[in-house]
C-alpha cells in the first residue's frame, strides 16, 4: 500500500495516494454488501461472527452496532482527514472508533438491556474488529464525508446481513426457533451443537460453499454466453 504523509496542505488539486477510484454513491454502498462483503468475502470480523451468531437477535444487534460505529467513525475520520497528521493517524482513528463503540455500548445497554447482556464482552470488542480500522485507513481517510458514510453504511449492511443469515440458520437448527418464536414445533429435537462454537464454523463453511457455488454457476453461464 502506498501510504504517504498528507502533511502540510499542498496546492496541487486533491490527489490522495491510494485513494479509491471515483464511483457513484450507490456503488459505494453496494460494494460492501456484495463484492467486498466483510464477512463472506474479506473475512474480517471473524471473532464476533463466530461468537454472537448463536441467535438471530444477537447477530442482528451486533451487525447494527457495528454499522453505527462504521458510519459515525467513517464520517469523523473523513471530516478530520486533513488535520490528522500521518504519524498519529492510527492512534486518532482508533480513538474515534473506540469512542463510538463506547457510545453504542451505552446506548444499547440503556435501550435493549437484554441484548446488551447477551452480547456481553463482544460489544466493547468491536474496537478490535479489523473491519473498522480497515475502512478508516483504506477508505474514509481518503475520500469526502459523503462517500465515507456511504461506504460505512454499505459495509455495515454487508456485515449485518451476513451475521443475520448465519445466526438465523444457527438459531433455527440449534433451537428450532427464530427471534425466540418456536417455529419447528415440539417434535423437533434441536441440534444443540449449532448454537455452540463448532456450529459457527460449520455454518460459515457451508455459507461460503454456497457462495462459491453461485459464483461458479454464474461464471459458467457467462462463459457459455460468450
Amino acid at each position: 500500500m502506498t501510504a504517504v504523509a498528507s502533511g502540510p496542505p499542498v496546492t496541487a488539486p486533491e490527489f490522495v495516494p491510494g485513494a479509491p477510484p471515483p464511483a457513484s454513491l450507490a456503488a459505494d454502498v453496494w460494494r460492501g454488501i456484495s463484492r467486498e462483503n466483510p464477512v463472506l468475502v474479506q473475512f474480517l470480523g471473524m471473532c464476533p461472527t463466530m461468537a454472537v451468531t448463536n441467535t438471530l437477535a444477537n447477530g442482528f444487534a451486533m451487525g447494527i452496532a457495528t454499522l453505527f460505529v462504521l458510519v459515525c467513525s467513517g464520517l469523523l475520520v473523513s471530516l478530520f482527514r486533513k488535520y490528522i497528521a500521518h504519524e498519529v493517524r492510527i492512534t486518532a482513528f482508533i480513538l474515534i472508533i473506540a469512542t463510538f463503540v463506547t457510545l453504542a455500548d451505552m446506548i444499547l445497554a440503556a435501550t435493549f438491556p437484554t441484548i446488551s447482556k447477551a452480547l456481553g464482552p463482544f460489544m466493547p470488542l468491536i474496537v478490535a474488529n479489523c473491519l473498522l480500522l480497515g475502512r478508516a485507513e483504506a477508505f474514509a481517510a481518503k475520500v469526502g464525508p459523503v462517500r465515507a458514510v456511504a461506504d460505512g453504511f454499505g459495509m455495515g449492511m454487508g456485515f449485518t446481513l451476513s451475521l443475520s443469515l448465519l445466526s438465523a440458520i444457527r438459531e433455527l437448527l440449534g433451537r428450532g426457533s427464530l427471534l425466540n418464536h418456536d417455529l419447528l414445533g415440539p417434535r423437533f429435537e434441536p441440534w444443540v451443537f449449532m448454537v455452540m462454537p463448532p456450529g459457527g464454523f460449520l455454518t460459515l463453511g457451508i455459507a461460503l460453499l454456497g457462495l462459491a457455488f453461485i459464483i461458479e454457476i454464474r461464471r459458467r453461464r457467462a462463459r457459455r454466453a460468450a
Binding site: 504523509a5 502533511g7 488535520y83 497528521a85 498519529v88 492512534t91
Partner: peptide, 21 residues
C-alpha cells in the same frame, strides 16, 4: 516525508481528539 510534522502539532491533535471523545 521531507519535513515531518512537529511534535507539538501531533500532541495537540491527539489532545483535542481525546478531549472531544
Amino acid at each position: 516525508p521531507s519535513q515531518s510534522t512537529p511534535a507539538w502539532k501531533l500532541l495537540l491533535t491527539l489532545a483535542l481528539a481525546g478531549a472531544l471523545s
